[in-house]
Amino acid sequence: MTTGDPAQIATHRALVVEDDEHIGYLLDFMLRRAGYDVLLAGNGRDAQSVIENVPPVDVILLDLMLPYVSGYQLIEEIREIHDWQHVPIVVLSAKVLEQDVVRALDLGATDYVTKPFRPQELLARLRRAVTDHEAFVGQHGQNRVAALR
């Protein structure tokens, strides 16, 4: 017997950094259904390895409370890496205090979604982040960014 979801053409790649295995499964499922290719990293160190070793993705979905390397630190590092510095980062965190949101945005996060999240709202925010990023790339040198891939 062969079965599966209807095939969809993945047009964007997303890096999901989430240490909760169950939330990771859920995000992976949601994003795949929405047409993303998904890279999953279960902690901050694995996320660093991805960033060091693969070409930039189209969007990063990032938890803040991560083992080994915090989400805040990852945002700082990503914004320092030439190839990755413009990749949109959507934070998905249980931290709901204003100062946590402000800190993440000040460090360079593109958007901030708190847990528990509404799946369709999260997907909409990811779409917006990707669209804005593509518009930015269009304005600031498609060729240069394409060369990085």
Binding site: T2, T3, G4, D5, P6, A7, Q8, A10, D28, L31, R32, Y36, D37, V38, L39, L40, A41, D46, S49, V50, N53, V54
Partner: peptide, 17 residues
């Protein structure tokens, strides 16, 4: 790690099992 992530990425493709 990269190999494992590639597997995860492949798993992200529409399954054909």
């Amino acid at each position: 790690i990269i190999a494992a992530l590639c597997i995860v990425a492949l798993a992200g493709a529409p399954p054909s099992v």
